[in-house]
Design a protein around this nucleic acid. Structure first.
Lengths: 338, 338
DNA sequence: ACCCTTGACACAATCGTTTGTGGAGTCCAG
DNA sequence: CTGGACTCCACAAACGATTGTGTCAAGGGT
């Protein structure tokens, strides 16, 4: 059963295809009589007409497709974002293509180029590095793009993220209130905005609270192994820490592994906080104290922002920071007496 | 900077667009001299020619896009599948669109229809129910489709999954070997193939091992809450169980919750096994004994199968069952003396 | 010397929409 | 009764590729 085309609908309604096209398109329905619109719609419904989006795309050069670029869909940070974005995109008639860059700048570049060739209308990018050539390409070509979760240095794109500084503040203050004076910040890889702003917030808040014995160690990536390694090294140098503020949940897990390796208990000996409140960390024992980030909402807002860009034209790049919340759980406790 | 079209490449190479098209297409390169092919390729590269996939799609009615349908990308079961599928699809020049049905049959139907309208070349479906109208529609329209993880009753599509029966056998035998005689099977929702085959395997193996006191309880969905409820109910009726074989990891978590609610410890009082070996269950305390399923491989194979369908035409529907492996961890222990 | 084959390319139709333009009809005012 | 002003629609040209069918020349066989 071949697909029914616009011509058939037009014939059934006794009008010219062009007229049928306008009748079906709410934007252009002005020049068509109500009568005709009804007849065409009727015919379309009866024949089960589904417009051929390639023909349409060819003519209008809009595909109604947007791409979402993530480093690794396996990382529980991203599925909620994907979900949120897909939800609002679908509602607006867009289709979401997901692309997983495997955390490699090169694959990312290739993927994005391929997608551009496919005529994708816009990008939501969750992989931004601080210096990011892919994003630069997109900027130069003026491809509608919005950044989510992380941003780049150039700052030429709208960005939807969360209030990193406040999140870290919550952690540090909580720990300070619990009596901790000697705190390690386990930061993310330096080429990411999240790592940078969280680290900056850490030193600032530590200073505000008069914490003198603080230190920042950077992990090479947002992975448990990198976290463990960085934490182990830092703990070796500065065994005095009684608390660790990790820049992400997986880093916190790495930190806990490093503590365990040194025979330190969490939270009795050393408190640990995570970041993101990824799905499962509340089920661990002890459940991880962490900062809840509204990931799904980020995805939704990123999509909405992109939609705005797509039909509204370009406005001033928005920078949207969603509020975060401290989830007090089992990995934080009063500083041990020494 | 407008995109360069085939005409421009042709002009640059001094040939007709039609010839340029053939020169660039490895399939049709026969009727073109090596000389010309080289000139055209050269020109294409210099001008940075990227074919307009909509124009091409309109003409060839192939979009080089396949859709992957998942119930909930937030469920850690699916990201590895997505990843595997995307990997092989990309390598073959295809683009993957992800669609999350939110576990609702109706959204699924709508999404699939919309995607069909978009001219998607094929589907990989991970949401199959035993009786599935969406799949029936796809079958009737003869849309290239392969099922992954779960299959439907009709069996009209190729399927890539894992050896459910063997996985359950491993669990039951392990528990029997540990001395358990009274085992509960916490099954998934009855309209899924995974639930059915795992439950069938359970009763079969239990019979083989001469286990008399066995019972199967079905959860309404693959969710922790449903698992807890079903397990709580079963434990209320049959307090004698010393082990639970859950049909999925999240169900196992639900079962553990139900045990805790009754004041029973795992594994000292009751052993529990999960299924799938989803990413984080090994980090729980105690780490979950479960069946490892090669999810990523499933995704890869599903994609390969679909590719075969797409250019090879239709062969006999394959049913591919990957081997599984028991991960002995902390939630299984010898049966307590009574 | 003639015809036929064959290789290499040009030509033009085609995929299914959208959209600028023109034309037929109607209505009302001058 | 004529001439605008409208309304509603038909016509046809795009969009950018692919592909069946010609065409032309060169080459080879007899």
């Amino acid at each position: 059963m071949a697909r029914v085309r616009l011509v058939e609908v037009a014939r059934a309604a006794g009008v010219h295809p062009g007229t049928a096209s306008r009748a079906l398109n709410p934007e252009a329905r002005d020049g068509v009589s109500k009568q005709t619109v009804r007849r065409v719609e009727q015919a379309a419904k009866e024949l089960g007409y589904v417009p051929n989006s390639m023909a349409r795309g060819l003519r209008t050069s809009r595909t109604m497709v947007v791409a979402l670029v993530v480093p690794d869909i396996t990382n529980p940070l991203f599925p909620p974002i994907v979900r949120g974005a897909e939800h609002v995109l679908n509602a607006a008639g867009y289709t979401l293509v997901l692309t997983d860059t495997n955390n490699e700048a090169e694959t990312e570049r290739d993927q994005v180029r391929a997608l551009r060739g496919r005529g994708v209308d816009g990008f939501i990018v969750a992989t931004a590095r601080w210096e990011d050539e892919t994003l630069q390409e997109l900027a130069e070509a003026e491809v509608p793009t919005v950044l989510v979760n992380r941003r780049n240095g150039a700052g030429s794109f709208p960005f939807v993220g969360s209030d990193d500084r406040h999140g870290v503040r919550l952690c540090v203050e909580e720990l300070a209130d619990l009596g901790h004076r000697s705190i390690l910040h386990l930061a993310g890889p330096p080429n990411t905005s999240t790592a940078a702003s969280r680290a900056a917030a850490f030193t600032q808040v530590a200073a505000e609270r008069g914490l003198a014995d603080v230190y920042t160690a950077s992990a090479d990536s947002y992975s448990e192994e990198a976290g463990e390694e960085a934490a182990a090294h830092a703990l070796h140098e500065h065994p005095s820490f009684t608390a660790i503020v990790a820049a992400s949940d997986v880093l916190a897990l790495g930190a806990q592994a490093a503590l365990a390796a040194r025979g330190l208990r969490c939270p009795q000996d050393v408190s640990v906080t995570g970041y993101n409140d990824v799905d499962y960390v509340r089920k661990l024992t002890p459940p991880l104290t962490t900062v809840r980030v509204p990931l799904r909402r980020e995805g939704e807002l990123a999509a909405e922002t992109l939609l705005g860009l797509l039909d509204g034209g370009s406005s001033v790049p928005t920078q949207l920071l969603l509020p975060v919340e401290l989830m007090r759980r089992g990995t934080t406790a009063p500083a041990p007496a020494r």
